[in-house]
């Protein structure tokens, strides 16, 4: 089992690397002079031919493509993601500096939404088709019909700013991360509740639940001891996918909350066309996704005796 997981993860890692390479290729292959693009990124619109030639020399842009690639790739393997076009600093260092706030907020959001999901789903199933279930269903329908950023925007403006509920701050601390994490968590939880509620209901309708009831077990006992552990698999997969969605959506989320994480960093790079930063973001997001998927796979394997057994 472990071998299968490791193999799958290595494969996913290779795919992530391949994706990064393809993204690297877009720049030299895109129409227009790469050197000129770099000058534009640095805010110089009318670079002279001399300046362009000097830059090409410096960046190795006049080397044949395979050689450029080799250079970039060797650097990459040594953990060197290049220098930012705009700041001139190493991209990796900048990234690592921006990573903690993002991880803080996303981690907190995942935690909060997992808790909310489990609590609200259990509540919905216990009161199946009665008013708590219906209120929860309405809430999940609304989050499903609103894109994350719109939900965040409305929650921020109406609840936080409008009703003076919480405060908008730009300093990075756990308390400051709480408000955005709570909003993002609530949005994520909507979809997860639909998933967990459905699988809990399916488990409760399963024949083993019927047999347990026929032995005199209470609904709550079956729900907590049997249905919940058996329903975690789809939830875990959804959490894994959400890590990806949140990494991808980070620029949007951080723009709304003025949160100084990697998303904001990417956004400034996007407007400046700072290619090394964009490439680095692709690589880091893809690797983060691979790690999340691996953790989810391990958790699922640990939960299921039928999968665990294969390992021994």
């Amino acid at each position: 089992m472990l071998a299968v997981l490791v193999k799958r993860t290595i494969q996913a890692g290779l795919s992530a690397l391949a994706a990064t390479i393809i993204v690297w290729l877009i720049l030299p292959l895109a129409p227009g002079d790469p050197a000129n693009r770099i000058f534009i990124a640095r805010g110089i619109d009318d670079a002279t031919e001399g300046q362009l030639a000097a830059l090409r020399q410096e960046m190795g842009l006049n080397l044949p493509l395979p050689q450029q690639f080799l250079r970039w790739f060797t650097d990459l393997m040594h953990g060197d993601l290049g220098l930012s076009f705009t700041t001139g600093r190493p991209v990796l260092q900048d990234f690592l500096g921006h990573l903690p706030p993002t991880l803080m907020m996303l981690g907190l959001a995942l935690l909060l939404s997992t808790l909310a999901t489990i609590l609200l789903s259990l509540l919905a199933v216990m009161y199946h088709n009665r008013w708590p279930d219906k209120v929860i269903a309405l809430y999940t329908e609304i989050t499903a019909a609103l894109p994350t950023f719109v939900f965040a925007l409305l929650a921020l403006n109406y609840v936080v700013v409008g009703w003076q509920f919480g405060r908008v701050i730009a300093d990075v601390s756990w308390t400051a991360a709480l408000m955005p994490a709570f909003i993002i968590g609530l949005d994520r939880a909507g979809g997860w509740i639909q998933l967990l509620r459905a699988s809990l209901l399916a488990e409760m309708a399963d024949s083993y639940a019927f047999v347990a009831k026929s032995r005199g077990a209470s609904d709550i006992r079956i729900l907590l001891r049997h249905a919940l552990p058996n329903s975690l698999k789809p939830l875990l997969s959804a959490i894994g996918l959400s890590v990806g969605a949140l990494l991808g959506g980070a620029p949007l989320i951080e723009a709304i909350f003025s949160w100084p994480g990697v998303g904001s960093y990417l956004l400034s790079a996007l407007t400046a066309r700072d290619y090394p930063v964009i490439q680095a973001y692709v690589l880091i997001a893809a690797l983060g996704y691979v790690v999340a998927a691996f953790l989810v796979d391990v958790a699922i394997a640990m939960l299921d005796p039928r999968l665990r057994e294969v390992r021994t």
Partner: peptide
């Protein structure tokens, strides 16, 4: 696999950033 190795939107950001 390669396309799906990237979380949704990340590829879109990269393509938009470059094009």
């Amino acid at each position: 696999d390669i396309v799906m190795a990237l979380p949704s939107l990340v590829l879109a950001f990269a393509i938009l950033g470059i094009l």
